[in-house]
């Protein structure tokens, strides 16, 4: 209950609304939007630096910050019930497991795949033809 009351207070005088109704203030919505636009520009700029190996991690970090603020404020997760948050976060946990385990597996076989003997390659199935 206290959390709900608090949420109401932080959003101005909507005291007559049902307790599950937490409108987000227009100011907060606009702030989030301009942060997202700023981060989008930032990710393009950082990409231009040519950080090499770090590029992908910088891009993913910025994307994750954007995703987090969309989740928290646009998707109202900040005011969400704990169970719904656990349900959604658990999906991210399973995605991490899925991709992480696949990467571990493919690393183990990397040599036999990427260093396949050139003379044993099959004939190419797509023949480049300048006329088509």
């Amino acid at each position: 209950m206290n959390e709900h009351e608090h949420a109401h207070d932080s959003h101005g005088d909507h005291g007559d609304l049902p307790r599950y109704n937490h409108p987000v203030s227009v100011k907060l919505l606009l702030t989030v939007f301009f942060c997202l636009v700023g981060l989008t520009i930032l990710t393009v700029v950082v990409n231009g630096f040519g950080l090499g190996q770090l590029d992908i991690w910088a891009a993913l970090l910025i994307a994750s910050v954007k995703a987090a603020i969309v989740c928290l404020f646009f998707m109202h997760m900040f005011w969400e019930k704990g169970f719904n948050i656990i349900a959604f976060i658990s999906s991210l946990f399973f995605v991490t497991l899925f991709i992480g385990l696949t990467l571990m597996d493919t690393r183990a076989y990397r040599d036999s795949q990427d260093k396949f003997p050139l003379d044993k390659r099959p004939e190419p199935t797509v023949v480049r033809d300048a006329n088509s």
Binding site: T43, N47, G50, L51, I56, C71, M75
Partner: peptide, 25 residues
């Protein structure tokens, strides 16, 4: 509210697709 949540998820997926597909050096 519910369609909004769906719409934000579509946005979230694009937030990841954009750097992964367009910003590769």
């Amino acid at each position: 509210d519910f369609v909004g949540l769906y719409w934000h998820l579509v946005d979230l997926i694009w937030i990841y697709l954009f750097p992964l597909l367009y910003l590769i050096n």
